[in-house]
Design a protein around this nucleic acid. Sequence first.
DNA 1: TTTTTATCGTTATATCTTTCACGATAATCT
DNA 2: AGATTATCGTGAAAGATATAACGATAAAAA
Lengths: 221, 221
Amino acid sequence: MPGQQDKEPIVIPKPTLDRLKLYHRLLNEIEQKYISSDEIAQRVGTNAEQVRKDLTYLKTTGKPKVGYDVAQLRQELEELFGVKKTTKVILVGAGHLGSALVNYPGFANYGIEIVAVFDNDPRKIGMFIGELSILPMKDLARVIKRFRVEIGIICVPKDSAQQVADILVSNGIKGIWNFTPARLVVPDDVFVVDEDMSQSLLTLKHFLEMKKQKMQESQRG
Amino acid sequence: MPGQQDKEPIVIPKPTLDRLKLYHRLLNEIEQKYISSDEIAQRVGTNAEQVRKDLTYLKTTGKPKVGYDVAQLRQELEELFGVKKTTKVILVGAGHLGSALVNYPGFANYGIEIVAVFDNDPRKIGMFIGELSILPMKDLARVIKRFRVEIGIICVPKDSAQQVADILVSNGIKGIWNFTPARLVVPDDVFVVDEDMSQSLLTLKHFLEMKKQKMQESQRG
DNA sequence: TTTTTATCGTTATATCTTTCACGATAATCT
DNA sequence: AGATTATCGTGAAAGATATAACGATAAAAA
């Protein structure tokens, strides 16, 4: 395998990465100069050992009796997640969800900029979502090249999802944020993050089921 | 601890539960009568052993040389997730995202019915989202009681999130689907599922960071 | 300056999850 | 009917992650 080196291929475990995201969010909300592993833990709902373990994956180190330098930690996390670099993104599918995303105020904080919205419904072409006019799919290649877009958001009906993914991939997109329940098939070097809301829903319903069962049991018992 | 029994407190591990959701979705898409662990695995991107292990948490059992009965497995999963029972849900926050959710066609498939939408902006009261007219917050208690609502969706601005959560909880809501980045503080018996899109974003950006680093390394090396 | 204390970093232990391995079994083939 | 085969179910091994334990260290107190 050429181009691969054994020295320090430190990969951060997924669970740790997920918690680091929580820490990152927390650090953006607090004012103090230092914070202890224990305080971080309490605020995000884990324990101090876990926090310290997680932070060993970073360069930032804490001081005994004081804790971690908030600004420093925040900055390292921002680098880790590339928050500071603006990433240009296109969105395909100008339905309700697409509109919601274009208008989502949170993206700017994470260096995300939606530069164009596409749809294949001729009636929608030219209409505006926020300040962006909806473009036809045939303009996609041009826009991606022009703005050097790397990420595409898919929020079209499920049955068109794979087709759209194929178009995005063939135009050089390397990251896809998939809001449809479809499982996308893409080359290895393309990264897909699924945002399937129905799945979260199942989690909620399952919880309520469990709860009801428990209540019935304790009544019987 | 009264009301707690030691016999068979079988709890399905979270990773297993997440995969079961994938299997459930798959089973809804296929026509065949039987399916093998291997086919399930290939279709959802895992391996056969994993699938079989996961299915040991269910009552359904497979037949050698044949596989699992699709209909039976589907039904057991539907029961597990409470898909068949319609759950009534209210939504607070009639912004872009709220509208998107009300119009989301996928909910019906999972037995979710949004029965009312609330907002505290007087200008929005009485306007329609789909077929639902936007109600003032003061109607909330009445609606929850009337429809026996157990789940509330919060998609208001971050700063109002906790306040809304408190209102929901005090009106007997037991499950909250939180679309804001706020961390909600609720009693132990209330279950919160966070749907923080900014967090998924970080996953994507982190991936792109990694990728860039790798490319730089391989150029240097 | 010495002692005490809070908090870190890290190694060791425990738990949880996945993978492996293989005997059991129902369907198919000879 | 007996042999063969695909597939299951499960217990054991391996791997990953989380928790616990504790010595080290910087700040604060004595």
